[in-house]
Design a protein around this nucleic acid. Structure first.
Length: 524
RNA sequence: GCUCGUGUGGUGUAGUUCGGUCCAUCAUGUCGCCCUCUCGAGGCGACGACCCGGGUUCAAAUCCCGGCACGAGCACCA
């Protein structure tokens, strides 16, 4: 039996065959004219809603390792999680996953930095803030339950021996020992009687699982190195998969958004949840992100390079940390908008700072005052002899060209000498922006008219009396390029972001009593 | 090697659930023009993509099969 659609399609095809497609078009126009109109495709804006979300009871989490401040990559986690929370009237738990004392040890200062950076980006503080290292009793208790329940055991095989057995789907000898023996080994572990590497607690899983990574995965291991925040108190520390699984359950997390490199974590943790009889949260993934200009982001790598003196500190403008971006003048809402526009996909992507900069420009442009910055300054003396309007001693220039900031910058021409960039000397007839047309003859700027008389190039300039020496520092790859010049000395304040006309946005870093003002380049 | 995942313009992204309204969305980029007293902003236009090969179907970016490419996990790191 043919469906109605098929019947109609056949009819239409028959019509087209006998009388041509025009006949079909005409028939459609007569019966159903709106079917002939094409509607344009639209792009979905913002994030797709979370699956199986109940508005008002969504709990998400953002769980960085506090071994350094947040990087631009973490910004994705903060932006996406906080955005989902906003969409679903949910909460975000900021959790410090600081259960490794050895390989990626926590940096005590980072806890506060991260809370602060989270708030900066999300626009409000995290709803709940917890540290895994504060919650050790809970994890140890669950480990004990797991052993008592017979779905976890203490394994004393070496890592390589275990790997061999696991790869051939064989049980290790420790697996079949009694619960009593396991509990006594467990006590020895937590009392510090077994040295590092001497034992590990494993979660029992099917040994014939197709994915070898999942078979009897390790949940806790021994670390005798003191923890920067809680000292020597614990000898056994949970691994990420165990700690995170228990804590997500404790916090009632409903949705986990994590990197797809953690897909196996989801599978391991689901097995653990089954042992405990819990329901695993909804899980979503994103792919790996690289930024052309920076490559990947390794917190431990940066930490080393800072210690070696390659970078001055975490806010070194060459680094992809949030601290550095913030210092340079990136706006939180622009960064957030950028990440939300990228959305949540499992594709591995490589993005360009140019795109982020464009988001930033559109946010900061209207609130940045203009200033003149003349590089490689060359002095010219104004000559008014040929100016029809006569001599002028002051210039009044808008703080912002489109008036989003009202008022003007008042320039006094002082002794009549001005500065322009050496590169602008290529033409001898130019226009001083917002001021006058001039002809350059040797060291003289002969004023031809105040009004714009033709289409000649417009250059930025400065009266010598308004100029102060300044340096503009630009982070380019792993170097700094420093340009010297003269900055317009009009209402300069440390920390302000200004747009240097024809140069780009920059932040005023310092204004010393004597010497050059320091400017840090943001972007064009 | 085993396991898992992903392939839409230069870069990202929408559309893929449920085949037709898709000669494929938007942003960014590049180029050109207009406007503007910045090389900024704004406006207009151009460029440029469904990984490949089969199959199903009247109809495939979308479904099926087979390749290929790339990435990740297989840590007593997170």
């Amino acid at each position: 039996m043919k469906s109605l659609v098929e019947t109609e399609v056949d009819a239409a095809n028959a019509l087209a065959a006998s009388q041509g497609v025009e006949a079909v078009r005409d028939a459609l126009a007569a019966t159903n004219p709106e079917a002939l109109e094409r509607q344009k495709q639209q792009k979905r804006i913002g994030l797709k809603p979370l699956p199986n979300a109940v508005d008002g009871s969504v709990v998400l989490r953002f769980a960085p390792n506090p071994n350094g401040p947040l990087t631009i990559g973490h910004a994705r986690g903060v932006s996406i999680n906080s955005q989902f929370a906003e969409m679903h009237d949910g909460k975000v738990v900021l959790r410090f996953d600081d259960t490794d004392t050895k390989i990626k040890p926590p940096l005590p200062a980072a806890y506060e930095w991260i809370e602060d950076e989270y708030e900066w980006l999300a626009g409000k503080p995290a709803d709940i803030v917890i540290r895994a290292s504060d919650r050790m009793p809970i994890y140890l208790e669950h480990a004990k339950q797991m052993i008592s329940g017979g779905f976890g055991y203490v394994c004393r095989c070496s890592a390589s021996d275990f790997k061999q057995l696991r790869d051939s789907k064989e049980a290790c000898p420790c697996r079949e020992r009694s619960i009593e023996n396991n509990l006594s080994d467990w006590n020895a572990m937590i009392e510090g009687e077994i040295s590092e590497g001497g034992a590990v607690v494993r979660v029992k899983t099917g040994l014939d699982l197709p994915n070898p990574a999942l078979r009897d995965w390790p949940a806790l291991r021994i670390q005798h190195t003191p923890h920067p925040m809680v000292g020597q108190k614990y000898k056994v520390w949970p691994l990420l998969d165990f700690q995170s699984a228990i804590e997500d359950h404790e916090q009632g997390v409903t949705h986990i958004v994590r990197g797809k490199d953690l897909m196996d974590s989801t599978r391991k943790q689901t097995l653990l949840y089954q042992h405990f009889g819990w329901k695993y949260p909804e899980t979503l993934y994103w792919g790996r992100v690289k930024v052309h200009e920076f490559g990947g982001f390794s917190t431990s790598g940066m930490r080393n390079e800072i210690e070696e003196g390659i970078y001055s500190d975490w806010d070194d403008a060459r680094l992809p940390t949030l601290r550095a971006l913030r210092r340079r003048g990136f706006d939180a809402s622009a960064l957030r908008a950028f990440w939300i526009d990228l959305g949540l996909t499992q594709k591995d992507i490589s993005i360009s700072m140019q795109t982020i900069e464009s988001f930033n420009s559109s946010v900061i442009d209207e609130r940045c005052e203009r200033r003149s910055f003349v590089r490689n300054a060359r002095t010219l003396h104004l000559n008014w002899n040929n100016c029809p309007e006569g001599r002028v001693d002051d210039a009044s220039i808008a703080r912002h060209p489109s008036g989003t900031i009202s008022g003007s910058r008042e320039w006094n021409l002082g002794d009549g000498s001005i500065l322009i960039e050496t590169d602008d000397l290529d033409n001898n007839e130019i226009r001083l922006k917002d001021f006058a047309d001039i002809e350059i003859v040797e060291n003289e700027a002969r004023v031809q008219s105040l009004d714009r008389s033709d289409k000649r190039a417009i250059v930025h300039w400065l009266p010598t009396s308004m100029a102060r020496p300044a340096t503009l520092t630009r982070a380019v790859e792993s170097d700094f390029i420093i340009e010297e010049g003269m900055i317009e000395n009009f209402e300069l304040t440390v920390g302000a972001i200004v747009q240097l006309e024809r140069v780009g946005f920059a932040r005023i870093e310092s204004i010393p009593k004597d010497g050059a003002i320091e400017l840090l380049y943001l972007h064009g």
